[in-house]
Design a protein around this nucleic acid. Structure first.
Lengths: 195, 195, 195, 195
DNA sequence: AACTAAACGAGACGGTACGTCCAGTCTTTAA
DNA sequence: TTAAAGACTGGACGTACCGTCTCGTTTAGTT
């Protein structure tokens, strides 16, 4: 019943200054130059204030991304698979093109050198996006648009995999056209019974 | 027009010491701890010797990977798509599982913070792997196993994308079972005419 | 015209906890590790409580020292200079050896980087000790044991100087033997008329 | 006969820049503000360069002091004790007044929080000064100006002690007048046989 | 008994400095 | 004449404290 809030409360102003400084630096320098020191300088705060709340740069970026991305997962639940999937992928691509590409690239890059962060990144970001896509496929399966024998895990890997692949390697653009091509390919795949 | 080789020749011993130190450090520390300084220490050489021959750590890793990977692209040209693709993907997965996972993860990670390296990485590694997979699809197309209306680029993105995605995010293993599931899904996809 | 004391009065418990935490930390860590934060932690108090009552660490140490040292200045007024001086110096040395050496070293050290504290230290500690020693010499002068032409200031400087010097530099112990040697030397000095 | 000097040699320019930056900062800020960071900034060098050659700030100050002080120990060997001692003390006081007071205060202060440095300080500075003073007394003893029964250690403690005491506590100036008073007192002391 | 005002603990804040690691570059000797 | 290698400048790391601040919580003395 007690569980009182002791001590000086966390400064919301600082928190937002840090998050927006991170966003700004990431956009401006494309990932290079995103250091704790630079964030502290830009946010006019101290380094310890940052370390008190986040374990490192990547987790700040993750929070920035989540605060944007979670809002944007909007699935229109009642249409055909073609339309639902198409809209979901186009929205994802737009998010990448418009503001999030550098952020996501930074996150995967960092995840490769920090296993603990990779777990946090997977649990809080990719796992949730996978869940959404899986529910889209599950609904289509209920409606009979997909045969129940299909391997949904592999489908999800192919869809998100292709997107990340383009984003990370950069051999071709990750834009709306690509979203449409991908949608078409998946539709064709699921309309076919297993071999 | 002699163009003689003047001065002290490059030490092959140093070169190999550097390459194998890089490989060893990468395997031992999982990417953390692979720095120019550490390589120089381990190879018992000086940093300038490294900088004279490579622009940075990632390029040493790339050279290590290429010297292994180029040898392993073996495509059996005469079988069915199912078998050719299956074999290619299984071999790729094995390479990752057995020795190359950390290397590849390091390379993509570094490519995100260094555009120039991303180009080198793409030109020397992923582009060549893509070409092989595209030629596999092209041969299948000639044999009529794939309709000519199929978007081969998207197919390649889906195959390699799924593999990289599993490797980088780590939500599920990138092994032979996955190679087989992926092969099956692709086969089913290409057997269906476009919508 | 009352000027009443409003509000919660100062907590004696806190005050003592802080003083004894300071004493303990000083003894344990030999000066290193005596920080405001450490004192607050050890005394289970808040930093502002400390800053409300003392300007800094050194002043807490000074208070600790004064509460011990002022009590211990006991001068037997009726003996010969030899005995009075000898007893005074032996007592001083014992205080240093038994509990106060680290404290005094901490105080002088801090006084070198803080002029304002140096004044407080001088006024509250060294000046009072000097006064005692001067009164010892004055009494001896009245009894005729010292000629009135002697420079008492220099005598005091030489006595206390030698003690501080040994304590601070540490080339030889500051103990009872030293107190006796010092006493003897001073006695010999004052028995001689100026040149 | 090999033992060759490999690699880039130590930069004399850097060394001197660091030493003179230290001297300047010490004089300007009176001890406060003499930090490794400040020295590096002022000397336009990197912190690692400093740490490569010195364990900490105090050792830089010690080197500055030694480079000045060692030159200034000039003892005129053939005069009377009165003159030799008087000259030695006046010179010492002048050194303190003119440029070295803050340096010496900084050194003793630091020696109180760092036992290892206290040893270095004693071995390289105070021990050498003590040796000089002891040799002055030894010569006087040979000439019969001092009786062989005198305790030279105590004499040295009293002389240097009084000087350090005035310098550190600041209750009275450490200048030439003081040097003369001190000389006179010592002369009087040694002219008296032990009790 | 309720009110008031100051001291209390807890802890976050903007900062400075720490000592270390690594990146790249420079400058010398060795081959 | 180039390779090799140690010392260089310098940026960032993550941590420890500083002294200040903002809270909610005692705790005596006053109404």
């Amino acid at each position: 019943m007690s569980k009182a809030k002791l001590g000086r409360p966390r400064s919301e102003k600082s928190k937002e200054a840090i998050l927006s400084a991170t966003h700004a630096l990431l956009s401006e320098t494309m990932g290079t130059g995103l250091t704790i020191e630079a964030i502290a300088r830009r946010a006019k705060g101290g380094k310890p204030t940052i370390y008190r709340w986040w374990p490192g740069v990547a987790d700040i970026v993750l929070e920035v991304v989540l605060s944007q991305a979670n809002a944007s997962i909007t699935v229109s639940t009642s249409d055909s698979l073609q339309e639902t999937l198409g809209q979901f992928l186009r929205e994802s691509m737009n998010a990448i093109v418009n503001w999030g590409g550098v952020h996501l690239r930074f996150l995967v890059a960092h995840a490769q050198k920090d296993e603990a962060f990779r777990d946090r990144f997977r649990d809080n970001f990719t796992a949730k996006r996978r869940a959404v896509l899986k529910s889209i496929f599950a609904q289509a399966m209920e409606r009979g648009e997909i045969g129940s024998e299909q391997n949904v895990e592999i489908l999800v890997d192919m869809v998100f995999g292709a997107m990340w692949y383009r984003l990370l390697i950069g051999h071709a653009p990750a834009n709306e056209t690509f979203a449409d091509d991908l949608t078409e390919a998946i539709i064709r795949l699921v309309q076919n019974p297993p071999v």
